[in-house]
Design a protein around this nucleic acid. Sequence first.
DNA 1: GCTGGCACTCGTATCGTCAAAGTGCCAATT
DNA 2: AATTGGCACTTTGACGATACGAGTGCCAGC
Lengths: 341, 341
Amino acid sequence: MPIDERKLDVLRAIVKDYVATQEPVGSKALVDRHQLGVSSATIRNDMATLEDEGYIAQPHTSAGRVPTDKGYRLFVDRLSSVKPLSAAERRAIRSFLDGAVDLDDVISRTVRLLAQLTRQAAVVQYPSLSRSTVRHVELVSLGAARVLVVLITDTGRVEQRVVELPDGPDDALLGDLRARLNALVVGLDFASVASKVADIPGQFAPEDRQVVSGIAATLLESLVERSEERVAVAGTANLARHGHEFDSELEPLLSALEEQVVLLKLLGHASGSTPVTVRIGQENATSGLSSTSIVTTGYGPGEQALGSMGVLGPTRMDYPGTIAAVGAVARYVSQILDANN
Amino acid sequence: MPIDERKLDVLRAIVKDYVATQEPVGSKALVDRHQLGVSSATIRNDMATLEDEGYIAQPHTSAGRVPTDKGYRLFVDRLSSVKPLSAAERRAIRSFLDGAVDLDDVISRTVRLLAQLTRQAAVVQYPSLSRSTVRHVELVSLGAARVLVVLITDTGRVEQRVVELPDGPDDALLGDLRARLNALVVGLDFASVASKVADIPGQFAPEDRQVVSGIAATLLESLVERSEERVAVAGTANLARHGHEFDSELEPLLSALEEQVVLLKLLGHASGSTPVTVRIGQENATSGLSSTSIVTTGYGPGEQALGSMGVLGPTRMDYPGTIAAVGAVARYVSQILDANN
DNA sequence: GCTGGCACTCGTATCGTCAAAGTGCCAATT
DNA sequence: AATTGGCACTTTGACGATACGAGTGCCAGC
């Protein structure tokens, strides 16, 4: 039996009602709450077909139907239009983000904003170093044998780390190194930095090489490799408010939110900047997240996304609203980053 | 009826059993599991007294007894000795913390370690700025009219922020300002910085004052005031694993963990560095946290604590173990910070 | 002051019943 | 061929009754 137009209407109605009520929805309730123009018996037949095709399922015989992952997928892909944000929401986005002074500030405001708008858990990735170029490297002597290395990117990220050296460099050497380092790497993307920095020690007098290599090694290893990606999280408390049916997911989800590595995998490598991606339930292979959905998108001024941001919540979420919120916030953040450029 | 020695034994046994099983404990179970040397009837009498005095309560008639907040308080204050850590735990602390290179690294390792050792949520406050002195101020020009202000303390904290200026300062002015600023504030504690910095603009030529005040204002307002305190959190997923009776607490607790302000209030102003503080249930006035306990202590090499760290979990927690873990970690972190000094 | 015994209370588990919700199917209708 | 009304069937959840077990409180005796 083919899936005709009306059956899609039925599926759409089921998803909407289920998301709203969190209870399995039956044929009678459907004809009551929606203008479908046919009787409940007809709906029942349609529902039987939809179940055969795997779009919906019943928790037990003679309960209402619940959308499956496949059902949500169809809903998201073809049955829902993006819900325009309310004026209040647009205003909230603006007033929340406009006061930001800093990249750090932008990111932290963004993640809290997303959590608040969607009432779910939000994640924002800092602009990826692999998409950034070096704007400046600063070396600050911290007395004795310790140097603070600060790395600043064109995207506004500031990474810093202290290096312990066997021997304290004097100020002249440090100044010299700072100048050479900047001359060498400013403007380069991070892939190219590695090869260039390896040459640095050779430019110095043999007695200074040990110090210089130490700093160079840190620059590479810890600033470029270790902390390449960085994420901010907010709104975990929102997850605890969803019905108890979502409880079994809570612990694995909270774990995932604490593990950078897992989180980055879930965010996905931001592809094109524009479209919002939805991953539903089982679609994200991470174990324990089989009833969690993830709505992500890239952000950044240009074609190439600088990073990803997104929202995590139960599969039973308001997709049109969430997609709209994520999209709108990402666009606005992109604008801000462009202006701050 | 007075509370004699044996009644205290009974209370101790009740707390231990309840923490272990999470179920109300009855007189029979008590004599079975502990060598109390008397019969269950006697225990019943003792329990009746303990209930009269408010140390224990029964969820309903003819159920076992459960410790009250007051009961836990007595247990913590007088009935439990700090449980020595296992060799494995000591080893874990060492191997976890020894690789730290940085203050950031120390803090982030510490908070994860605490969460793992106690299987609860952990919080670590960065060394308070009010207990730190300025080690260095660095100004980095970021092209155009933007300057990065970096502040470094003797405790290793590095705070940075970008200032937008109406007019780009030239390098000479920036260098001059950096020198004067450092001459003025290095070594000062933060309370004194404010008054000193206010004088800075007067030392410059009138045409430069606008730029200089901008930077000075940022230094004060955003680096000293805004971000005075800073905390790291880990182990929230551990909270989701406690029995469902703790569920009602979950959302308020997760909210508290996301709110710096609330969190700092809960951590309490680290008083003396040595003793571990326990706040039980209702004792922390924060609403919604009436069955959450908090175990905190200060850390830092000297007499004055630099900051606090602690653990949050259900009132029904293993106090001796948690207190031992928090204490041991704080001592070890203090050592590390002392060595890195 | 401790103990054994016993009556009492109350929560939980079990069972049967019942009503409500929902389905699937079929025969009749359009 | 699609839709509809009707009806029998299934399952859940609520309700009540009952039995059971755990645990208490109290008392008389040691």
